[in-house]
Computed example of a mutant assay.
Amino acid sequence: MNTKTYTLDQIEGEKATLLLRSDESEELIVDKEKILPAVEGDILELTFSEKNEIQSSRVLVEETKSARLKANDLLQKLIDKNN
Rank of each mutant, 00 (worst) to 15 (best):
M1I: 14
M1T: 12
N2I: 14
N2W: 11
K4C: 05
K4W: 04
T5Y: 04
T5M: 07
T5I: 09
T7P: 01
T7N: 05
L8G: 00
D9I: 12
D9T: 08
D9N: 09
D9A: 09
D9F: 03
Q10C: 07
I11P: 03
E12I: 11
E12Q: 07
E12P: 06
E12R: 08
G13Y: 02
G13N: 04
G13M: 03
G13V: 03
E14V: 05
E14F: 08
K15P: 00
K15I: 07
K15L: 08
K15Q: 04
K15M: 08
A16K: 00
A16Q: 01
A16S: 00
T17E: 05
L18S: 01
L19V: 05
L20G: 04
L20C: 02
L20F: 05
L20N: 02
L20R: 04
D23F: 06
D23Q: 12
E24K: 12
S25Y: 09
S25F: 10
S25H: 10
S25E: 12
E26K: 13
E27Y: 03
E27I: 13
E27M: 10
L28K: 06
I29M: 06
I29E: 07
I29A: 03
V30N: 00
V30I: 11
K32L: 12
K32W: 07
E33Q: 13
E33D: 12
E33L: 15
E33A: 14
K34G: 09
I35K: 00
I35G: 00
I35R: 01
L36Q: 11
L36H: 06
L36A: 10
L36P: 03
A38W: 00
A38H: 03
V39Q: 13
E40H: 11
E40S: 12
G41F: 13
G41M: 07
D42W: 06
I43T: 15
L44T: 00
L44K: 01
E45N: 14
L46Q: 04
T47Q: 10
F48I: 13
S49H: 02
S49W: 01
K51I: 09
N52H: 14
N52A: 11
N52W: 13
N52V: 14
E53R: 15
E53S: 13
E53N: 13
E53C: 11
I54N: 05
I54C: 00
I54Q: 02
Q55T: 09
Q55E: 08
Q55D: 04
S57I: 09
S57Q: 04
S57W: 01
S57H: 04
S57C: 09
S57D: 03
S57N: 05
R58I: 14
V59Q: 00
V59N: 02
E62P: 05
E62K: 11
E63C: 05
E63T: 10
E63S: 06
T64F: 00
T64A: 01
T64S: 05
T64R: 00
T64E: 03
S66E: 06
S66L: 08
S66M: 07
A67L: 07
L69T: 06
L69G: 06
K70M: 09
K70A: 06
A71S: 07
A71T: 10
N72W: 06
L74C: 09
L74M: 10
L74A: 08
Q76D: 10
K77W: 01
K77S: 14
L78Y: 04
L78R: 14
I79A: 05
I79H: 02
D80A: 14
D80E: 15
D80R: 15
K81S: 15
K81Q: 15
N82E: 15
N83Q: 15
N83T: 15
